[in-house]
Structure formats: structure tokens, C-alpha cells
């Protein structure tokens, strides 16, 4: 792969262009001195990175830093990423590893602090903040609530995958699953196991129309 590849070597005009394709194009254009596509990618993919990091149990402040440093790392490694098609996966894996590191640091820190006898008040503060619980959040639409509670009935890993899939494009299913360490084989844009499970739960609950 040469850094001088021109736009067009990735299927730009493809109607099925996914987030992963746009990420590849952004990398190639950036190598070529054009940063517009990368800026758009940051806007589009930051929510996906944010929720990937948060799913690892990272508090909001630390997650903010992890997402930024993931994007900064992309710029630093822009010439060493051999396979542009794998940029989306690279971003997700980089974010996830940095999230684990942040969680490890927080735990070490918490352990050090709880060893201090007078520090009782702080011991709870180091627990990852996972945001308000389901009961604290008012989901204003009944269907949102049904969907949210149905989601909690599928396995934890499926919940994570479905949340992230929902934030990307369906053809990115495979990249996201791989980054989460959930190989899905040649799943392509098929419904897949997790979504099929969610559908079964929702179908059992009956009546509500989803389309």
C-alpha cells in the first residue's frame, strides 16, 4: 500500500459505502494532504468510540481522554497502518485497549487510596461511573423502554455488540464484532445471532410495531 494512493481506489461511489469504507478513504486522503474526510470521520465515529470505551467501565472524564488519544494515535500512525480497510477496526481496538489501561489505572489508584485509613469517603468515588441507572433515566417513549428492557435479556456481550452496531452502518457488523473479540464468521449484512436473539425477545412481547 503506498501513501500516494488516490481517492477512488476505495469504492467511493458505492451506494453501500459503510463507515468502514469512509474511514479507509479518510486515511488515504489524509496521507495525500487532504483532511476534510478525516474531520467528517471524527464527527461520525466519535459516538462509536465513546460507547466502545464506556462499555469497558471507564468513567466519563477518562473516556473523554481515551477517545481523543485514540484519534491522536491515528494521526501518529497514519503512515504505518498497512491496510486502510482495517482503519475502523484499528480505531476500535486501540480505543478498547486504552480503555482497559484506564480501568487498570483507576483500580490501582483506588487500591492505593483505600489503603489509607482516613480516606473512607473517597473509596467509593473511584468506582467506574456508568451513568444513571435505567430507572433514573426517563425514556420518554414507551417503545424505547420496551426495547431497552428487551436488550437486557440478551447476553451481555450481545448487548454491547448491538449498541455499537446501532451506531455504525450494518456492513460494519464484522469489523465491530472482530474488534470486540466476537468473531462472527462470514456474517456480512445478515441479521446475526445477537440481533436474532433480540428479535425473539421483542417478538415474544408481542403487539408493538417496530417499523
Amino acid at each position: 500500500m503506498s501513501g500516494a494512493m488516490q481517492e477512488g481506489t476505495v469504492d467511493v461511489g458505492d451506494a453501500e459505502e459503510s463507515l468502514g469504507d469512509r474511514a479507509a478513504r479518510a486515511l488515504l486522503e489524509y496521507r495525500d494532504g487532504r483532511s476534510g474526510a478525516l474531520t467528517s470521520l471524527v464527527r461520525e465515529a466519535t459516538p462509536l468510540l465513546w460507547h466502545t470505551v464506556r462499555a469497558q467501565g471507564v468513567d466519563r472524564d477518562a473516556a473523554d481522554d481515551v477517545v481523543q488519544s485514540t484519534w491522536a494515535a491515528l494521526v501518529r500512525h497514519v503512515d504505518t497502518i498497512a491496510e486502510p480497510k482495517a482503519v475502523l477496526k484499528w480505531l476500535l481496538v486501540t480505543a478498547k485497549r486504552a480503555a482497559w489501561e484506564a480501568v487498570r489505572k483507576t483500580r490501582d489508584d483506588a487500591r492505593r487510596r483505600t489503603e489509607l485509613p482516613d480516606d473512607v469517603l473517597e473509596s467509593g468515588a473511584a468506582l467506574p461511573d456508568l451513568g444513571p441507572g435505567p430507572e433514573a433515566t426517563v425514556l420518554d417513549d414507551e417503545r424505547d423502554q420496551i426495547l431497552w428492557s428487551a436488550l437486557r435479556e440478551v447476553p451481555e456481550r450481545c448487548q454491547q455488540l448491538l449498541k455499537l452496531i446501532s451506531l455504525a452502518d450494518r456492513p460494519d457488523y464484522k469489523a465491530i464484532s472482530a474488534a470486540l473479540g466476537m468473531p462472527v464468521g462470514s456474517i456480512g449484512a445478515t441479521r446475526g445471532r445477537c440481533l436474532a436473539k433480540l428479535r425473539a425477545v421483542l417478538t415474544d412481547q408481542g403487539k408493538v410495531s417496530w417499523t
Binding site: 459516538p47 465513546w50 460507547h51 464506556r54 451513568g131 444513571p132 435505567p134 433515566t137 425514556l139 417503545r143 424505547d144 426495547l147 431497552w148 436488550l151 448491538l162 449498541k163 452496531i165 446501532s166 451506531l167 450494518r170 449484512a189 445478515t190 441479521r191 446475526g192 445471532r193 440481533l195 436474532a196 436473539k197 433480540l198 428479535r199 425473539a200 421483542l202 417496530w210 417499523t211
Partner: peptide
Amino acid sequence: VPGEAEPLDAWDMAVLGRLARVVEERD
């Protein structure tokens, strides 16, 4: 799981679209 090999359809898209909104609303 029954249906896992089926292609994504309008139902899947609608549910995923709604899920994206709920995820964003919660965090």
C-alpha cells in the same frame, strides 16, 4: 438462533435506529 442467517430487513433497521437513539440518550 432462528433467523440469524436472514438478511437485515426493515424491522432490523428500525430497531437498530431506535437503539442508537436510546444509547445516545442514556450516555
